[in-house]
């Protein structure tokens, strides 16, 4: 997270991690399509000609604090800039993955639901853990949610299986079919909610921005052109604890 008091900006970095071809870029593309201009910027994709992510994709979102507290104080409004990155999933891009992961405030792990990909999911998760360790971070400290993508395909792990696993795990789990736009918003807002809750608890960001803690995610949703209630999106979570204040980092 970066705070720029002079520019009245707060920067949050979210990273979509996962094995090759699990749908990280597709998530970003869908999110880009499902939100309105204004708050969201241009999607930058750096890929090879066969559509494989080479370095990363990046979707910038810009939210202007418009909470009641901000209006009351009449100060110049703060800007919350959220940048969503994807990492290149292919094994050979290990060093790029580490570069992108550095400084992440939250991670969405995009897993492939196909039974045949189970091992790749596990290997990529271990790779995430290893890279975090080398960056001096741990999964315990970082807000992480898991998305089981490609629910529309055959031969995928069953809902019951995922549900049972999700209830046992600590990370919130969402199911998605990113190519059809299903579960994409749920995953993004789930991650934003978890990350915001964590950062706010640590740095009192809500006060800094001038919004109520619980007001930020709905505000972001409105600025992205969503009309419904964010809590219904968050309710799609099938396991883990979306409302936990992640373990406090010792000072």
């Amino acid at each position: 997270m970066q705070i720029n008091f002079g520019g009245r900006e707060i920067g949050i970095k979210l990273v979509y991690y996962g094995p090759a071809l699990s749908g990280k870029t597709t998530n970003l593309r869908s999110l880009h399509q499902m939100t309105t201009e204004g708050s969201r910027g241009r999607l930058m994709t750096l890929e090879t000609k066969d559509d494989r992510t080479l370095f990363f994709d990046m979707l910038p979102l810009t939210f202007r604090a418009a909470g009641s507290a901000a209006r009351r104080e009449g100060e110049r409004s703060m800007t919350l800039r959220v940048k969503i990155f994807t990492v290149p999933g292919q094994v050979l891009h290990a060093s790029t993955r580490r570069l992108v992961l550095q400084g992440a405030d939250g991670v969405a792990f995009i897993a492939d639901s196909q039974i045949s990909e189970t091992e790749h999911n596990a290997a990529s998760f271990l790779d995430l853990r290893q890279n975090l360790a080398e960056l001096g971070l741990s999964l315990k400290q970082l807000p992480v949610i898991i998305q089981f993508n490609k629910r529309d395909l055959d031969r995928v792990r069953s809902d019951d299986e995922i549900g049972a696993l999700a209830r046992r795990g600590r990370e919130p789990v969402f199911k998605a079919s990113a190519v059809n736009g299903q579960g994409v918003l749920e995953t993004f807002f789930g991650l934003l909610h978890l990350t915001w809750t964590r950062l706010d608890a640590e740095h009192q960001l809500a006060k800094m921005i001038g919004v109520e803690s619980t007001e930020l995610v709905p505000m972001a949703a409105r600025q992205l052109g969503l009309t419904g209630d964010v809590s219904t999106l968050l309710a799609a979570c099938v396991g883990g604890n979306l409302d936990r204040h992640t373990t406090k980092v010792p000072a």
Partner: peptide
């Protein structure tokens, strides 16, 4: 534990705000 953080930040690469 020694940390081997990469020396380049993606935020710098992106010229964030600059």
């Amino acid at each position: 534990m020694t940390h081997d953080a990469p020396q380049v930040l993606v935020e710098d690469v992106l010229l964030d705000g600059r």
